[in-house]
């Protein structure tokens, strides 16, 4: 890894509350190269907030601070809205959990992809249409012409998520942030969507941040994994070594999953320790 695509140091996200300040993310460091980086943690661990902070999507009164947050050497920390919009979608894209809520219900799929593309590429309409068709083919939609003219409620969940991916990848971003992209999907559809994402990311040499609560999935899909707990990274390790993780939190999470191949009478329960919140 020569120069990282994205470099983050001491990232903090703070929200004021009635009881004082609440830090959702408490000083995390990582570099993202052209790789698939998994971010794992339970709800409230700050994993989604990390993704939102990178995209500048933390709304006031929430505050984002960092010693460094650079996209290919250029700082993207607290940029003005206009510049951030150009980066968001153009150079960094995000796929959300549920396509039902991320697609506009009153626009056809085609219009939405074309619009998203033209916002960043300034291409003529016809070229944008070609690009949209090409993207839909790239996410293995068999009949792209028909899908272009359909509305979001007419497509299935798996298809919707593929359309989202097509839309997000149309402007050729360098980084894709996927926040639980397959949690709303059935297992059989999940594999297909992951295959497509994998292929696109590999072929285009993109960096992928894959946010998920599913340890096994991340272990199988990603190259490297950050494990987050209470706003901090407790452990970073190569994905294939996840099952040899050292940190008691990671071990506890792994153990508490019921497994088809190793039946147990009682599931080990994770005993949380306050010391994990420190480093």
């Amino acid at each position: 890894m020569t120069e990282p695509l994205l470099s983050v140091r001491d990232l903090r996200v703070t929200f004021p509350t009635r009881q004082g300040e609440f830090q959702a993310v408490r000083g995390i460091d990582f570099d993202l190269g052209r790789e698939r980086l998994g971010v794992v943690g339970e709800s409230g661990s700050g994993k989604s907030m990390t993704g939102r902070a990178i995209l500048g999507l933390v709304r006031p009164p929430g505050r984002v601070e960092a010693a460094r947050m650079e996209l290919e050497g250029q700082s993207i920390l607290n940029l003005p809205d206009r510049q951030m919009r150009a980066i968001r979608g153009g150079r960094i894209s995000m796929v959300m959990q549920d396509p039902k809520f991320s697609l506009n219900p009153v626009m056809t799929v085609g219009q939405q992809i074309i619009e998203a593309y033209r916002l960043h590429a300034r291409a003529p309409r016809a070229a944008a249409r070609d690009k949209a068709l090409q993207m839909l083919e790239a996410v293995q939609i068999r009949d792209p012409e028909r899908v272009m003219d359909s509305y979001p409620h007419q497509v299935s969940g798996g298809m919707g998520q593929r359309i989202m991916i097509a839309m997000m990848l149309a402007p050729d971003p360098q980084i894709l942030i996927a926040d639980e992209p397959t949690s709303a999907l059935d297992v059989s559809v999940r594999t297909e969507v992951l295959h497509i994402m994998d292929r696109l990311v590999r072929d285009r040499g993109m960096g992928l941040i894959f946010i998920s609560h599913d340890l096994n999935l991340v272990a199988q899909f990603c190259d490297r994994v950050l494990i987050m707990y209470a706003g901090r990274v407790v452990e970073t390790l190569p994905a294939r070594d996840l099952h040899r993780a050292q940190h008691p939190y990671t071990r506890g999470l792994l153990n508490s999953l019921p497994r088809l191949d190793a039946p147990v009478a009682r599931l080990p329960v994770l005993e949380r320790q306050d010391s994990w919140k420190e480093n």
Binding site: E42, S43, H213, L253, S256, L257, P258
Partner: peptide, 9 residues
């Protein structure tokens, strides 16, 4: 969450 799932199960 998975750790809570274990407790409930």
């Amino acid at each position: 969450d998975v750790s809570v799932q274990a407790e409930i199960l």
